[in-house]
Amino acid sequence: MSVGFGNWLDERIGWRKVWDAIFLRKIPKVNWLYTLGSATLFVALLQGITGILLTIYYVPTPDHAYDSVVFITTQVPGGWFIRGVHSWGASAMVLLSVLHMVRVIMYGAYKYPREVTWFTGVGLLLATMGFGFTGYLLPWDQKAYWATIVGTRIAGVAPFIGEPILRIMRGGEDLSAVTLARFFGTHVWVLPTILLLFLGFHMYLVIRLGISAVPGKEE
């Protein structure tokens, strides 16, 4: 029955080919370090799910942000879990992507023919940092507020473009409701879009080119 349905569907959307290409492709002998990329992807997925769940209750205004976060953490069933995983997942994500990157450098995996995979990887790392920076402000607690004051001011030091960048980041002179709203927008719309684009491209290249083998001593 299920085989029959599989055939029926395959005739129409051709999923078997995709399945074979993704899951049945041959992989050179690799070690455990090669799981770092997948692990990062897993955490990204987790962040996506918990992040979406958080937006159900979170309200991005200075009046309500803090209260809604407290509400999530203390009142909503499982709220502490969702927020805890999201918060720690952010750290895990940064840590894993950096480790993954170090592995790639060490094995020379960014070399021919995988240069573009590397470019997209760097893009993903920067997007991850962007997530970390924008997500930090959202709870609107002391740490969030003052770290963002400092963080945006640091950006403002850049020559010539610093001042406009600072204003654009803050949405004005000061850290305000405008800042919170745009950080929220960036965190849940802009960066996920960028991340998905880069991630799709990254994965496509990984599947198309295959992951690099562990280089031998002579290579």
Partner: peptide, 16 residues
Amino acid sequence: LVALAYFVGAPLEPRA
């Protein structure tokens, strides 16, 4: 992550 969420929890300081 679950252990961290359970034992440490997500940090939250006083309101900004």
